[in-house]
Design a protein around this nucleic acid. Structure first.
Lengths: 345, 345
DNA sequence: TTGAAAGCGCTAACAG
DNA sequence: CTGTTAGCGCTTTCAA
């Protein structure tokens, strides 16, 4: 049950009657060592349950084969999927990941970056929508290679990967327009930073193309992108007069919370009011009604981010896009059951 | 932009005109060193942007201040919350966490345990519902201290923390019984292992107390605890004749998927059929109708698991329960809007 | 093909 | 109060 006495290469060397460097070579499959010797050493290592010390190796080689992932909220369905994507590739390369979240606290974010650096991660995956050039300046640059995920930080760092949100909400708005909606509301995210601006802009774009503008009364704002914000938004929608016939939420989480309140108030979706989300988190397809939204490839975002980092570290990658400095992903419109033509008055 | 030349204590020592051990002492706040010297050293360290190498420290002290968290699916709302709880305490202690998931592959699970050990984590948090005594035997024991989370593995390891699921489904079933339901179905999870058994048993218990039994026609089984399984379950429910008036799902995710299909089929919840979940993931309260479920304290589960691990490592913990070998958490019934008396025939 | 030796950055006796 | 020394487990010259 207790620690089974740590076996080192020295111990193996002693038992095999060779030097520890030979053991090191054998275990690392360096071709120089004599086949029989190598076989004997490997057998012994296996028998003794030898485990190489990643710590020692890291100290010596200056490479840890560890990636650091930093993001905002640990329990976010969107980033959970991104993380799953990251893990799937990282695992194939024999890397491990440190994961931590800064819970919207920039000071903590900086602390995490330093901790990760002290722990000698090879690269950082920064899933922060709020990191800015200014912040980077204050920190005096990043101590390790990093790729920005989900943040168009090209002005700050060469490596970033993000989704074209603006086209997304534009497509979504066009869809609503085509259905005949004119009174379209947008639910913002006060914490959304660049994401908020991009998504809102997409709505404005589409509206402008149709010769319309985003009515200030329908230009709503919620504190964040969580479910509760959706509920808050719903109250605002209910208070509007005339009521919008469609509302496009910052993301699916908001849409979810919004739908509940609207439905509880007796409104039928989509008959009385159409609702659209953004992101297409796995949940979206399972809501009632199934949510119309814009699909962002979350898993792929994670996979590519990880590959981009690995590429920077000199690992061979399969996806050619991972070799680009800036990667823009395109999503696609997912029309489901929560949107329909506006009710006839 | 690039690596700003790593500063070590030797470098600081050179510049301060002292030995590197003095630097080490000063930086670790050992009281022996002269105040002025210490101040000078610390100033210098700050100025040079010194970062201690956690790797070197780990190698020397045999303590990494890293915990390994292993679980099944990376993108699971339940475990996301648990992980958030873990992180919240771990962060306070200056620990970091490796996170990885084995995606229902036992071989991979074992591999992860070995990797974590090689990376010298101080303790393991095993959120595996499928790990068994036999598996442990085959592995020849765990190489590092571990606490089992969400698995009553007392026969295997001294340290485990879990929730009393059986009482949970029992309370849920009693609630349904009190509402007047008699045709109560249970949605199982073929992958659920012990959890499945416990939850199903709670239903059987409550039914037996009421002089009833779980009708085999209502003793349903879905492949897993995901949303899609809920949809599968819904088809089974719809095919039942007579139809159950209430269904208790393995967890909230199932309930979610089930509700959508039922609602799409034109059934009103709870008017036509009552639905209950299990876990009370944050989402549950925001569904329409808000889901009746049994609250498992997910965050607390994570917090306590982390504290239990930290306690094993000799760290002072605040929650006295964390010093127990086996911790059982109690949840509570959350009656919301998805359950009501059965329809009058 | 193998061994001896150095050293990664740090902590911790032990001496002074 | 401070310096010297050794060594954590490994990789990697350099010689043999």
């Amino acid at each position: 049950m207790s620690t089974p006495k740590h076996v080192t290469i020295k111990e193996i060397a002693r038992r095999a009657g060779v030097s520890h460097s030979t053991v090191s070579r054998a275990l690392n499959n360096l071709p120089v060592v004599a086949p029989e010797t190598a076989a004997r050493i490997r057998a012994l290592a296996h028998e003794l349950g030898y485990m190489p010390s990643a710590t020692a190796r890291t100290l010596k080689t200056n490479r840890s084969r560890v990636l650091g992932v930093i993001y905002n909220r640990i329990a976010d369905p969107f980033y959970s999927e991104v993380l799953a994507g990251i893990q799937s590739v990282v695992h194939r390369y024999g890397y491990s990941v440190f994961v931590s979240a800064f819970e919207y606290d920039p000071r903590r974010e900086e602390g995490l970056i330093r901790t990760m650096a002290a722990r000698q991660v090879d690269a950082l995956l920064l899933c922060s929508t709020t990191f800015t050039a200014q912040r980077l300046q204050e920190m005096g640059g990043l101590p390790i290679p990093a790729v920005f995920v989900h943040n168009r930080a090209t002005d700050v760092l060469p490596h970033s990967i993000y989704h074209d949100d603006r086209s997304g909400t534009r497509a979504l708005t066009q869809h609503l327009l085509e259905l005949g909606h004119r009174r379209i509301a947008f639910g913002g995210n006060a914490r959304g930073g660049l994401l908020h601006e991009q998504r809102r802009q997409g709505v404005v774009d589409a509206l402008a193309e149709a010769g319309l503008r985003l009515d200030p009364a329908y230009d709503l704002m919620a504190p964040d992108g969580q479910m509760r914000s959706g509920a808050i938004l719903a109250e605002q929608v209910l208070a509007c007069s005339p009521r919008p016939t469609a509302i496009l939420c910052f993301n699916d989480m908001q849409a979810l919370g919004l739908m509940q309140v609207l439905q509880t108030a007796g409104l039928r979706i989509p008959d009385d009011i159409s609702v659209a989300g953004f992101d297409d988190i796995p949940l979206a397809a399972f809501l009632y009604p199934a949510l119309t939204t814009y699909h962002q490839p979350q898993w792929e975002l994670g996979e590519l981010a990880a590959q981009a980092a690995l590429h920077m570290l000199g690992e061979p990658v399969t996806d050619p896009r991972a070799t680009f400095d800036v990667i823009t992903l395109q999503g696609r419109l997912m029309v489901r059951r929560s949107t329909a033509p506006p009710p006839v008055p």
